[in-house]
């Protein structure tokens, strides 16, 4: 099998070249991004192993990995991850729905914008963490107040993104819709929605990033489980490896969820005529 492949490839030297450059694009490019963190991790591992540092406050990767494995084996890690994921999902969902609806209304109707936008902008000026005491008084110290805080964090970037995107839809494209006598709903579906989509995806990704930020804040304010609890617990009991383990898992989860948004929306945005420095990634 391999033999035949190679012989046919050898007969056409150009095919070899393009096949190998394809392989380079598929595998080597993403690997390039891992190079720097991997080198740093290995260097630190070596430093501790050679005895240059005792690694007590900055545990080497192997010890962080061992902590993760230990937490996994006890089933604890899974519980913390699902709790945190659930909080982010609920907060992100609520914040996205509210931000999308209000942003769309403010973007589409001038009167709604004049009515709502000043209030929303004023609320946006408040650091979201400042709501924490009030949310705890109103909603209790359990899940509701945490989800509410995350939702507030997600709401503003989504709101701003949607409103801004609608306001910057090209008038010339809208005129094309008018000349074809599109009704209001058809105009929204066939012109505004697709035109707004790229900016909306960016808003969702920014919102998700803030969601992950605020879940930590929410879990700092008194939680008995969740990755944020692992952080606090690690600090109070002096377990830096546990803190680093939680941070690593945050990084993995954040990156994965962001990548999921990218993956799901990519087919909808293939039409974009975008500037991609350094080639397609």
């Amino acid at each position: 099998m391999t033999m035949t492949l190679e012989t046919t490839a050898l007969e056409r030297p150009d095919a070899i070249k393009s096949a190998s450059s394809n392989r380079w694009q598929r595998f080597a490019r993403p690997l390039l991004g891992i190079l720097v963190p991997l080198t740093l991790a290995l260097a630190w591992e070596a430093a501790v192993w050679l005895g240059w540092s005792n690694g007590r406050l900055v545990p080497p990767p192997s010890r962080v990995f061992a902590t993760i494995m230990e937490l996994t084996r006890s089933g604890e890690l899974w519980r913390h991850i699902t709790t945190t994921l659930w909080r982010v999902a609920a907060g992100f969902g609520l914040g996205t729905v509210a931000g999308t609806l209000l942003g769309a209304v403010s973007g589409y109707w001038g009167i709604a914008r004049r009515l709502l936008d000043p209030t929303v902008q004023a609320l946006r000026a408040i650091p979201s963490i400042a709501w924490v005491p009030l949310f705890i008084l109103w909603l209790g110290i359990f899940e509701t107040s945490k989800v509410a805080l995350i939702a507030v964090g997600v709401f503003f970037p989504v709101y701003l993104g949607v409103m801004g995107a609608i306001l910057s839809v090209d008038r010339k494209i809208v005129e094309v819709g008018r000349t074809f006598r599109l009704s209001g709903p058809a105009m929204i579906r066939r012109i505004l929605l697709p035109a707004v989509l790229p900016a909306y995806v960016v808003a969702l990704r920014v919102g998700l990033g803030l969601g992950w930020m605020f879940v930590v804040a929410a879990e700092f304010m008194g939680a008995s489980e969740g990755l944020g609890y692992l952080l606090i617990d690690g600090q109070q009991l002096g377990k830096p490896a546990q803190i680093l383990a939680a941070i690593t898992i945050f990084a993995l989860l954040g990156k994965t969820t962001d990548w999921l948004i990218e993956l799901v929306t990519a087919p909808l945005l293939r039409w974009q005529d975008a500037f991609r420095p350094g080639g397609e990634s």
Partner: peptide, 26 residues
Amino acid sequence: PHEKIGIIFQEPRLLPWLSVADNIGF
């Protein structure tokens, strides 16, 4: 705008998210 009247602008004003065929069938 009326169905008996069509217009072509200075710029093509094609919808970038539709294929050429879908633009013509808009």
